[in-house]
């Protein structure tokens, strides 16, 4: 008698341990009842947990976007001056952003022969034409913001500050293509002259 009940007790505790062990395996905490960013939803009809903005939404704390910084225009005229302070950091930022977002088509030097163009995209004009060298800086800002002809708009990827930085860098690119030896700092000039004197080993263009 005693033997049998002890046996049942063992079986019972074994079962409790097994159930507890199995419970330890269940995965509720791995996928909790909340949405991770971009997780699909079966509640909303379009399947998105990230809800699209209601039309007319204004970003909390956003500056109202009718100044030069956000439109590239003052009094309806394209801005001719950079609305930010020009320094080396701004140009470096512009260079980085230009190489990410623009050089694919416009090429690193702005000649309009980037990789995507080589794969069949319509060729953009070079930045070094008289027309674009003479264009006010606001024009570049506006092209990036709204697109131009077949060129898409870049305001979804590049914010207003960065767009001005890119515009400033394009100006630097334009200068660079028409620079003379006199524009080079004396300390660097010697290097250039030396490089010009010794022809490169492989003459491949």
């Amino acid at each position: 008698m005693f033997f049998r009940s002890a046996c049942r007790c063992h079986a019972l505790s074994a079962m409790i341990i097994a159930v507890a062990a199995l419970a330890g395996c269940h995965q509720d905490m791995y996928d909790q009842p909340r949405y991770e960013p971009l997780e699909p939803s079966d509640f909303f009809g379009d399947g998105r947990s990230a809800r699209p903005l209601v039309p007319g939404t204004v970003i909390y704390g956003a500056e109202m976007a009718d100044d030069v910084l956000h439109t590239g225009r003052s009094d309806g005229e394209l801005a001719t001056e950079l609305p930010l302070e020009l320094d080396a950091a701004l140009l470096r930022r512009g260079q980085e952003r230009f190489n990410i977002y623009c050089s694919n088509c416009h090429g690193r030097s702005g000649d309009g022969n980037g990789m995507i163009v080589q794969r069949g995209y319509r060729q953009p004009p070079t930045y070094h034409s008289d027309r674009l060298r003479g264009a006010p800086i606001g024009h570049f800002f506006e092209v990036m913001t709204n697109g131009f002809g077949v060129m898409p708009a870049y305001s979804i990827q590049v914010n207003a500050g960065d767009r001005w930085a890119i515009a400033a860098y394009i100006r630097a690119l334009q200068l660079s293509q028409f620079a003379t030896l006199d524009d080079v700092a004396a300390s660097e000039r010697a290097k250039l002259e030396q490089a010009a004197a010794t022809p490169p080993e492989d003459a491949n263009p």
Binding site: L38, G120, Y121, V150, P152
Partner: peptide, 15 residues
């Protein structure tokens, strides 16, 4: 982040 379809179309409207 995942690119919105617009970003694909920046190039694939033509390519």
């Amino acid at each position: 982040g995942m690119p919105p379809t617009q970003i694909c179309m920046q190039c694939h409207s033509q390519i």
